[in-house]
């Protein structure tokens, strides 16, 4: 029996452009079979017990298998003119959906997993940053994050100190804001939308809203896929398979503040699908 808190959240289930082009996606959500397709001009998501609540946002189809506790979170930047919205496409990962989100929030692994791109030795220090659970929106936010990056984005020429903000607006979605090499006054926005197929298997949909008029679409996609696929083999080997929500054998450090806040937030809200409740 899956907790109602889990059932009443929104989850990404497909890329909207592919469904609108006539594709029928037979997939799973929280261990149950679902189908995503267009019927009479409308995107519908059907489960064993009938249709699910559906909304379309940020290039993707989102479904709620229960009764939505709230509307899908907003990303106001997605509506700004001049941004390029990039659907990066699905990648399947054998890991807990919560681990996929947690990895996206981590900065410390950059020099070791995304070597010479998002980080490089000896620039391994994660400077102090701030984390809060915002009460108005009930979201986890990390701000004032800075990190030295050899190639922060496809449009970056050489190394820069990149500023970041991270945001967790839904149990299996995270959004980051980072220095935009082409427009120093604006942030590039990158999202990771995770579809929980089961507690240990997920489909991950990276998505971007960038200020970049120069780079061909295929290169933007390739850059983000390269980054995410560098993470995939690491994610598939993390132990324990489920994300522990209680402190145990793991010793978090200063750099893990966002992860700790994310775990606390999940626990407080009862969002335990993909989580391990016994201290690891």
């Amino acid at each position: 029996m899956i907790a109602p808190e889990v059932m009443n959240e929104w989850y990404p289930v497909a890329m909207a452009a592919q469904i609108c082009a006539g594709q029928r996606r037979v997939t799973q959500l929280l261990g149950q079979p679902i189908t995503v397709h267009v019927q009479d001009g409308v995107i519908v998501v059907t489960g064993q017990a009938g249709p699910l609540h559906v909304t379309e946002a940020f290039g993707h189809v989102w479904a709620c298998p229960g009764t939505p506790a709230h509307p899908l979170f907003p990303i106001p930047e997605a509506l700004e003119t001049g941004r390029r919205l990039v659907d990066v496409g699905v990648v399947r990962v054998k890991c807990s959906p919560l681990r996929a989100v947690e990895n996206f929030l981590d900065i410390a692994h950059f020099p070791f997993v995304h070597t010479d791109v998002l980080g490089a030795e000896p620039h391994t220090e994660v400077n102090r940053y701030e984390v809060q659970i915002r009460e108005d929106s009930d979201e986890v936010w990390a701000t004032k994050v800075t990190f030295y990056q050899p190639q922060a984005a496809k449009s970056a020429e050489g190394g820069i100190v990149t500023q970041y903000m991270y945001r967790v607006p839904a149990p299996t979605a995270a959004v980051l804001y980072k220095t935009c090499p082409a427009r120093p006054d604006a942030w590039d926005v990158i999202g990771i939308f995770v579809q929980p197929l089961s507690e240990e298997l997920c489909d991950v949909w990276p998505w971007m809203a960038l200020y970049d008029d120069a780079t061909p679409q295929a290169e933007l996609i390739a850059f983000q896929q390269m980054i995410f696929l560098q993470d995939r083999s690491i994610l598939e080997n993390q132990i324990p398979r489920l994300l522990p929500l209680d402190p145990g054998m793991e010793i978090p450090t200063q750099a893990d503040l966002t992860s700790i806040a994310y775990r606390r937030w999940l626990k407080k809200r009862g969002l335990t699908y993909g989580a391990q409740m016994v201290a690891a």
Binding site: M15, Q18, V88, G89, P216, I221
Partner: peptide, 10 residues
């Protein structure tokens, strides 16, 4: 020359 193999199937 990057080709959008996935998801674009270029």
């Amino acid at each position: 020359e990057a080709v959008d193999f996935h998801p674009g199937r270029a």
